[in-house]
């Protein structure tokens, strides 16, 4: 299956480990990501006021690229746009929803879309990679596993953007199970914990890092308390806060017990038998190899 793929800026820079591991894992299960030939940053956060249409230009411009890809035969009749980054998913989805629900806004956006050949027709669907896996069936994924992640206790961190608001959430906003089902399909152990969809502090990390430290500490402590040995995420901002900021917490508090943070696709890659090199573990700030070696999952 070939599917148009929107990487987002961060996957090309600090989150290369996410992209690498996702593309290679997907190949193993017969999914080929076709990167949009030209794409632009979605804006990270959705525009939430009623009149601020300009900030919807960026998402919609990317939808035009998907239309073009279909015309050019890069994909066949595929109106879905796949994302990995939770924030891209959320922002693209919310803009798309608005365009689908409001013909006037769509018209205005099309009128102001400078230098584009065609109009957005409102028919693109934004999907997250996890939803594609779910649709394919986690039981099917389980059958393709060559290296079960036995005994590895994995806490699923949803953060905010995969689940909320409800209109675009990929699962139940209060009691999600999709990541746990994913973890089970890799034969790892799920962790029952409270902090899985608690905000990590998000972009406050730029100008108010203290808040992020407080929230991250809370999340890590909750994971520890419930026996987690690893935390998975699908958001490069969650990952930065949980991983890099956690390492800074550790620096100031030597007794602090850290937990490695993985992109869900990194664990998927291991379970599907990818080489260590394909996972970009060197991008993970808190040592990610240690626990994997302990569980004899990598050498």
């Amino acid at each position: 299956m070939k599917i148009p793929y929107f990487p987002g800026c961060t996957l090309k820079t600090t989150a290369q480990n996410f992209e690498m591991s996702a593309i290679e894992s997907a190949k193993k299960i017969g999914i080929e990501f076709i990167e949009l030939p030209r794409w632009n940053c979605c804006g990270v956060v959705a525009s939430l006021t009623s009149d601020d249409l300009m900030r919807h230009l960026a998402p919609v411009r990317n939808f035009l690229r998907v239309q073009e890809m279909n015309k050019q035969g890069l994909v066949e009749n595929e109106n879905r746009l796949l994302t990995l980054c939770s924030m891209c998913y959320n922002t693209l989805s919310l803009s798309n929803l608005r365009m689908k629900n409001d013909a006037d806004d769509l018209q205005k956006i099309n009128d102001f879309m400078h230098k584009e050949e065609e109009n957005y027709d409102g028919n693109i669907e934004v999907v997250h990679f996890l939803s594609i896996l779910e649709e394919m069936g986690f039981d099917k994924l389980a059958q393709k596993i060559t290296k079960p992640l036995k005994d590895l206790k994995v806490a699923s961190y949803y953060g905010c953007m995969l689940l909320r608001p409800k209109e675009v959430g990929i699962d139940d906003a209060e009691a999600p199970t999709i990541l746990e089902n994913f973890v089970k399909s890799l034969k790892a152990e799920t962790v029952d914990w409270d902090a899985g969809s608690r905000c990590c502090g998000s972009y406050h990390t730029v100008n108010n890092v203290e808040i992020v430290y407080t929230l991250v500490k809370g999340i890590i402590l909750d994971a520890r308390k419930n026996g987690a040995e690893a935390i998975i995420t699908s958001c490069p901002l969650c990952a930065f806060n949980l991983d890099v900021r956690q390492s800074e917490i550790k620096k100031d508090n030597p007794d602090f017990q850290t937990i490695p943070i993985f992109y869900f696709t990194q664990l998927m890659g291991i379970a599907l038998g990818l080489n260590k090199e394909a996972l970009g573990l060197e991008f993970n700030k808190i040592d990610a190899e240690d626990i994997l070696k302990k569980k004899k999952l990598i050498k």
Binding site: G8, T205, F240
Partner: peptide
Amino acid sequence: LPTIAVVGSFR
């Protein structure tokens, strides 16, 4: 800082 944080914050 990752781009995602900078863009989000500035927005």
